[in-house]
Simulated scan of single mutants.
Amino acid sequence: MPKKTLGAGFRKREDGRYESRFVVKGKRYSVYADTLAECKEKDAQLREKIRKGLYIDNQNITFDQYYKEWKAARKGTVKGNTALNAESRYKNHIGPALGKRKVVEMEKREIVKLQKDLAKKQKPSTVNATIAQVKSMLNSAVADGILTKSPAAAVKPLKDEGEKASETYHRALTVEEQTLFAELLRPEWYYELILFMLCTGVRVGEAASITWKDVDYINNMIHISTTQSRTEEGKYTVGSPKSRTSDRDIPMNEAIKEVLKSQKNKLKMVHGNVVQINQNVFESFTGKRVYDATVNSAIKRTIGRMKENGLETEHFTAHALRDTFATRYIEQGGSPQVLKTILGHSSLAMTMDLYSHVLPNTKQQEMDNIKIAF
C-alpha cells in the first residue's frame, strides 16, 4: 500500500511539528503548526495575504503588527474578559514601549526596562501579568518561525511580597455591618439579588444569568451552569462559567428560599402574575440585564444610609458579599472543603488562602467540642 503523503510542500519536522514551504516570485516562505490541519490553514492564509499584498515578511514585522496576528489567532480560544484585559495591557503599556520595534530586533534589556518602568507605578502582580503577555507573544513568534529564541525567556517575574489576598481586598462585613446593611438595603430594586448573593456566595455574573429553570425545588438545589461576561468587543453575553469548577450546584436553605419567593412575587407584580421558566430570576427595573455597576451603585447608596445611621463603614463592592458568605460559613462551623465546592474554587488551597484568617476565631469552639475519654 503506497505511503500517504502530507501534500506538496508539507513535512513533519523532527520536533513533531508540521511545516509548509513554498516559493512565490522567487521568494521563499514557510509556516509552522502543531497539527497538519492547522499548518494547511496557515499555509492558505499566508498565500492569500501574499496574493493581496498584505503580507509583512518576518524580518520587517513590528510588534504592533504581530500583536494583530497574535490577537486574531487567539480569537475564540479565550474568554471575552481575558481578551479585553490583553487589549488593555497592550494599548496602555506594551504597545507604547515596544510596538514600533521589529520583532527580530527585540532584546532582553528592552523587556527588562519595560518591567522596571511599570514597577514604579504598579504592583508586582500587575507588572507580571503584562510581562507574561509579552512572553506569550514572543513565544508565539518563535512558534511561527519569526524568532529562533524568545528574548524574554530569561526575564524573571517580580517577587510579590505584599499581603495575602485574605489581608487585602477580600474583606467581609462584620456581623453588625451585615445586619444594618440588610435592613437599609430594602428600598433598593436589587434587594433580593444582593441578599441572594449574600446567602449563596455567587458572583454577580452568575446571579445575573440564573433562570427559574436553574432553581431546582425537587432536589433543593440551585444549578450554576452559566455566567454573564463580556465579549472581546466589550458587549455582555451569557456563557460558560469562569472555570470548570464554577459549574456547580448550591444547596438551598430556608433563607435562600425566602429570598427567591420574594423575588418571584416582585416579578409577578411587574409582569402580570406570570413568571416564565426561562426568565431570568433577577433583572433590572426596566426588565433588562443586570450589570455589576448597577449592583455596586445600590450597595454604595446603602453604605451612605449606614453612615447616616451612625455606622461608619469602609467602602465595599459586590465581591464583599461573597467574602461575607464564606466568612460566616466558616465562623458557624462549615467545612472549608465543602465551602470550596459551593464557591466553585479550583482548589482547597485557594479557599484556605482567602479565608484562613477566620479559622483562628473558631479554634476554641471546636476544641471545646472535642471529647477525649481517659
Score class of each variant (00 low, 15 high):
Ile372His: 12
Tyr55Pro: 02
Ser240Gly: 10
Lys68Met: 13
Gly239Pro: 04
Val24Ser: 01
Lys102Ser: 07
Ala293Phe: 02
Pro241Gln: 03
Lys71Leu: 08
Asp249Met: 14
Glu314Thr: 15
Cys199Glu: 15
Pro360Met: 07
Lys340Asp: 06
Gln364Trp: 02
Arg328Asn: 14
Asn253Thr: 09
Ser335Met: 03
Thr77Gly: 12
Thr82Gly: 08
Lys120Glu: 13
Met352Ile: 06
Arg244Met: 14
Met221Gly: 03
Ile56Tyr: 06
Val358Leu: 08
Ile222Pro: 06
Lys149Val: 06
Phe10Lys: 01
Asn139Pro: 01
Arg244Pro: 07
Tyr217Phe: 14
Tyr191Pro: 09
Arg13Asp: 04
Leu339His: 02
Arg51Ile: 00
Thr77Val: 04
Asp15Val: 04
Ile330Gln: 03
Lys340His: 00
Gly162Ala: 06
Asn128Leu: 05
Asp216Cys: 09
Lys113Glu: 09
Arg51Phe: 11
Arg51Asn: 06
Tyr55Gly: 04
Thr286Trp: 04
Thr245Ala: 15
Val358Ser: 03
Ser125Arg: 13
Leu6Ala: 05
Lys288Ile: 05
Thr62Met: 02
Val31Gln: 02
Leu118Arg: 01
Ser346Lys: 06
Arg186Glu: 14
Leu354Lys: 14
Lys268Thr: 01
Lys100Ser: 12
Phe196Gln: 09
Asp34Glu: 11
Gly304Phe: 06
Cys199Tyr: 15
Leu321Phe: 10
Ala326Cys: 07
Met352Lys: 07
Tyr217His: 08
Ser88Arg: 10
Arg289Thr: 11
Lys27Ile: 03
Asp368Met: 14
Ser246Trp: 00
Leu138Ala: 02
Glu233Leu: 15
Met106His: 03
Leu311His: 08
Lys25His: 06
Tyr90Ala: 03
Lys4Met: 03
Val295Thr: 09
Ser346Pro: 00
Gly80Trp: 08
Thr351Ser: 03
Lys71Ser: 13
Lys100Leu: 10
Ser246Gln: 09
Arg28Ser: 14
Lys261Gln: 03
Ile342Asp: 03
